[in-house]
Simulated scan of single mutants.
Amino acid sequence: MNEALTDQQRRILDFIHDCARRCGRPPTVREVCAHFGFRSTGTARDHLKSLRAKGALEHRAGEARGLHPTRPVHGLPLIGVVAAGQPVTSDENIEGFINLTAPFQGQRSGRTFCLRVRGDSMVGDGIFEGDIGVVRSQPTAVPGDLVVALVDNEATMKRLVQRANRKWLEAANPKYKPIPITETARIIGRVIGILRSYEGKINIVPA
């Protein structure tokens, strides 16, 4: 996908995904129009044209239900790299999409994303280099949560802890010192799952 989608475009794409998952087929243009309350099919076609231009959708000529997303129905974007140890600059460009199954099928792109783990700072929690964290975007968390935070504009995965009325980002490896939550260290998401493959690489669909 070459360009970022607007909120409306994401909603339309999610609707097409949902129809494909629930009904086994994508919606027609008229069904898109009816679902979103557009006054004419022309408005729906304009949005679909923009989705095609951005590489998120393709239309197969000759099919009444020819709207086909170019990424997996349950795909979540894989964004950059999370440093578990010495943080590295997070690459905000989408590297690809990961097709997830239960229990992550209900997670929506835009609210949930995936980040790759590097380093050994979380080995005490059983999180290793090469794992992929499934992260729900949110600016707050409670002590005990596994979070992704931006520290001086670099992303890192740590455990949120609280001591003496102050919150810290703590590694699960004694080699690394806790990082205090400050204006330059802020939470951007809570980790809701870790992906790991024992039989080969996780299938990532290129963006």
Rank of each mutant, 00 (worst) to 15 (best):
L78N: 00
P77I: 06
S109I: 07
I94G: 00
S109T: 09
G75I: 05
L57D: 02
H35V: 06
V88E: 10
F104N: 06
R45Y: 13
P69G: 01
F38I: 08
H59L: 08
G110D: 03
R65Q: 12
S90L: 15
F113E: 07
G55K: 03
G42D: 15
P103A: 09
G106M: 07
E58A: 13
A61P: 01
H47T: 04
L57A: 04
L48R: 01
S90T: 11
P87W: 02
D91Q: 11
G66P: 00
F97D: 05
R39Y: 10
G85K: 05
T70F: 01
K54W: 02
T43R: 11
L67Y: 08
S40G: 10
I79D: 00
L67V: 05
F104R: 05
G66Q: 00
G106Q: 11
P77E: 08
E58H: 10
L115E: 11
G37T: 10
F36Q: 03
P103H: 03
S90P: 00
Q105R: 13
F113R: 02
D46Q: 14
S50H: 14
L67T: 03
F113I: 07
H68D: 00
V73S: 08
A84W: 06
L51Y: 04
P69I: 03
T89H: 06
G110A: 06
R65P: 00
L78Y: 02
T101K: 09
A56E: 04
D46C: 10
V81L: 12
R60L: 13
F113M: 07
A53D: 15
G37C: 09
H47E: 14
I94L: 05
L51R: 01
A34Q: 13
T70H: 01
A61T: 14
L115C: 14
